[in-house]
């Protein structure tokens, strides 16, 4: 568990997942984290279908030109306090596509990223760890 996280969580964490032009590698690992082997729903972490219900935004992919404003719109629709997690090398650095003419990313050029998860794709354990870290941040934000 992440450092600084209280033993009992104050609330369930609702996550919205947004694909900004990813290869699906990270996306299937996110779904794998929700499925029986890792089963994050037991911690109250849940994928929701609308950004308006979400506390955490999981962004995958290197943000292509067509998706940039859509990703921003999703972020703006989320209520405060909110946390952005960038999943996968593409979103963090551009990975193998780094020099491409059609990328606006990495994601931190478009959104303020709070937690970076590296890996191509990161394992479900790494994604769960990142969400737990985001939790700490949310609880600090709420304390203020």
């Amino acid at each position: 568990m992440a450092k600084g996280l209280t033993k009992a969580f104050k609330k369930a964490l609702w996550v919205y997942h947004c694909n900004s032009g990813s290869c699906n590698g990270c996306d299937i690992e996110i779904i794998a984290a929700l499925c029986p082997r890792y089963d994050v729903e037991r911690f109250g972490i849940k994928l929701v279908g609308s950004p308006r219900h979400a506390d955490v935004l999981l962004v995958t992919g290197p943000v292509t030109r067509q998706m940039a404003d859509k990703v921003k719109r999703v972020y703006e629709q989320m209520p405060d306090p909110k946390v952005v997690i960038c999943v996968g090398n593409c979103g963090n650095t551009g990975d193998v596509f780094y020099e491409s003419y059609n990328l606006v990313g990495p994601i931190n050029q478009v959104l303020p990223v709070d937690v970076h998860v590296v890996g191509c794709p990161p394992r479900p354990e790494a994604i769960i760890f990142a969400v737990a870290k985001a939790w700490t941040k949310l609880e600090t934000l709420e304390g203020k």
Partner: peptide, 10 residues
């Protein structure tokens, strides 16, 4: 579309 919350390309 083009944003999908879970799988696959937009």
């Amino acid at each position: 579309g083009p944003i999908h919350p879970a799988l696959k390309e937009p």
